[in-house]
């Protein structure tokens, strides 16, 4: 039943003028789970979150959040959710504590509760010392933590995290992951959008890959990796000009299409470690110098490449491509 899920969306379509940002997207987030919405820039991740968070009306389709219709019961939806966007949306001239108080007041919570909850969140997010400083003086990681704390003030059961770690340094990213894991262990449902495949791999039970406003794959990280086959061989050559030759030399080794990025070729292989020997022998007989060679499990990046034909952070070609495709549909 649609209303039992934390999030249930069916056939979402959103057009902006000529651009079809969402093209019949279905999405289910069961209660207590973390679902990662994965896709390149412009694939419709943010549009999806904005529709679910009542910020945008879908052109077609229906969506329920916490069992409430996002259009007809927007206020109930807003009471159920916390939203943290890509841009730490806090008032930078107010202190951390003042920001939390303002958002608590706007959720219409009693002053006593807001005070208690604020103190707890400041402690939890390691912001006690900075609590009375304007957010302007915070580091990027601290601001993001304050932003997340602000969306937790009313204890929402569903949290939308739209690229929560974009632009953060690795240490802050790790810290934020810890916070998200803690929230999930307490039963919060999370819909997470990200461009970082590592992030989805680490946090999400279930991954939904979208491109051009449609779901193109869905499953656990392991299942998605299996989908594109077993191990992958990755060869970096010394001289990028020799890539075509290397491709030719490796063709018999690869069991499928290979991908080239700068001076690296990677492709699916089967047959265990002897494949390494075969590859080296083949490259050697073509007199190609190898800078690095490795056999590894596929990453979600490989999944993405295999599914979409372009990389996860490959943004420039997306809009033109979608336009071309639409014309033919």
């Amino acid at each position: 039943m649609a209303k039992d899920d934390a999030v249930h969306a069916e056939g979402l379509v959103k057009t902006f003028g000529d651009v079809r940002a969402l093209d019949g997207l279905d999405l289910v987030v069961p209660r207590g789970q973390v679902v990662g919405l994965l896709g390149p820039n412009g694939s419709g991740k943010t549009t999806t979150v904005r529709i679910l968070a009542t910020l945008l009306k879908a052109t077609e389709g229906v969506a329920y959040v916490n069992g409430f219709d996002v259009v007809k019961q927007a206020d109930q939806v807003r009471h159920s959710i916390g939203l943290t966007g890509q841009y730490a949306a806090v008032d930078e001239f107010l202190t951390g504590r003042e920001n939390l108080k303002m958002f608590g007041d706007l959720y219409h919570l009693t002053p006593g509760y807001v005070r208690e909850r604020s103190e707890e969140l400041l402690e939890w997010f390691d912001l006690v010392e900075a609590a009375d400083r304007p957010a302007k003086t915070y580091s990027g990681g601290m601001r993001r933590r304050l932003d997340l704390a602000s969306s937790l003030i009313a204890k929402p059961s569903i949290l939308f995290l739209d690229e929560p770690t974009t632009g953060l340094d690795p240490r802050s990213r790790l810290g934020l992951w810890g916070v998200i894991e803690s929230l999930v262990s307490e039963g919060t449902t999370v819909l997470l959008t990200t461009q970082y495949l590592e992030e989805a791999d680490k946090l999400a039970n279930d991954i939904v890959v979208i491109d051009h406003g449609r779901v193109i794959a869905h499953g656990t990280a392991e299942k998605l990796k299996d989908q594109i086959g077993g191990d992958r061989l990755e060869v970096t050559v010394d001289d990028p000009k020799r890539i075509p030759d290397a491709q030719l030399a490796l063709a018999p080794v690869f069991g499928g299409e290979s991908l080239v990025t700068e001076s690296t070729i990677s492709g699916p292989v089967s047959g265990g470690s002897t494949i390494l020997v075969d590859a080296i022998r083949s490259l050697d007989s073509s007199h190609i110098e190898i800078a690095d060679i490795a056999l590894r499990r596929p990453t979600l990046d490989d999944v993405f490449l295999a599914l979409t034909g372009h990389g996860a952070e490959d943004e420039t070609q997306v809009p033109t491509k979608s336009r071309g495709r639409r014309g033919r549909r």
Partner: peptide
């Protein structure tokens, strides 16, 4: 901060 679980949040339910 490391990626280990933080202590649970104990504040009462929103009023």
């Amino acid at each position: 901060m490391t990626s280990q679980l933080l202590p649970p949040l104990r504040s009462s339910n929103p009023e």
